[in-house]
Design a protein around this nucleic acid. Structure first.
Lengths: 125, 125
DNA sequence: TTCGAATATTCCTTTACAGGAATATTCAAC
DNA sequence: GTTGAATATTCCTGTAAAGGAATATTCGAA
């Protein structure tokens, strides 16, 4: 099969607000794997080729490719072809999305919520 | 087996800084499941019993219990027993941890980094 | 046009995990 | 103690996903 260069990024256009919570499962799933987490951490330093990633993380090349594919489908990384090499880099979007998602829980550790929490905890049935 | 009430929270005391990235895989894994994500979203409103959670999300009770167990082991929720009922509530810690983790990537979407990104993208080999 | 490097893909096997159904446990009330 | 409600656990089964090994594809260079 001809390899398509445009990247398999899943369409993220038509997300209604209610789908958001479930919509992040692919992202979390992609990050819920030690090797992929290490890849993401490594790519913080900048774009790297598959071989470099495999070397630095002591992964076999096929596994590195597979993990990168998963990360790409989740929108975490994007690829740029250059001759034989593929340079993978982090995409900022998923991190922004995660930040937005997290924001919905930020009241959890605010002082105000801590007091409400305490209140409910001691509430009689 | 006797059910222990103290909760199976995984020890999070001795985390060296280098384990952090991999250390979050359990958390991401717990959230990488639609039903659990919905449970977490639901618990934002406040503590709920297993039955209430199962009802509101149209889950069967055993599945609800299982998901809550996973969430508990990941430290996402804690339980408070009250007679027959178990009241599950969100714990703020994992959200704080995620916020910290995310902070390490925040430069990704800063203006400064965007320019660096652009620079590297157009870099000759 | 053949070769070697870089990367992707396929096939296979093993393991983790989710859902369903049934059952066990715990507790309060009687 | 027996019962019923609330919850947890076990067993089973299907499925998705990860790693290993082998192979296919692509490209630049000789």
């Amino acid at each position: 099969m001809r390899r398509t260069e445009e990247g398999g990024r899943k369409a993220d256009s038509g997300l209604r607000r209610n789908d958001m919570d479930e919509g992040h499962t692919e992202l979390f799933s992609a990050l819920a794997e030690p090797s992929r987490m290490r890849i993401v951490a490594l790519l913080r330093e900048g774009p790297l080729s598959v071989g470099e990633i495999a070397d630095r993380l002591e992964l076999r090349q096929p596994q590195a490719s597979k993990h990168l594919k998963v990360l790409q489908q989740a929108g975490v990384v994007e690829v740029q072809a250059e001759a034989n090499r593929r340079h993978y880099r982090l995409r900022p979007e998923p991190f922004r999305e995660m930040e937005d998602w997290l924001a919905g829980y930020r009241e959890l550790w605010s002082d105000r919520f801590d007091r409400l929490d305490e209140y409910l905890r001691n509430m009689p049935d």
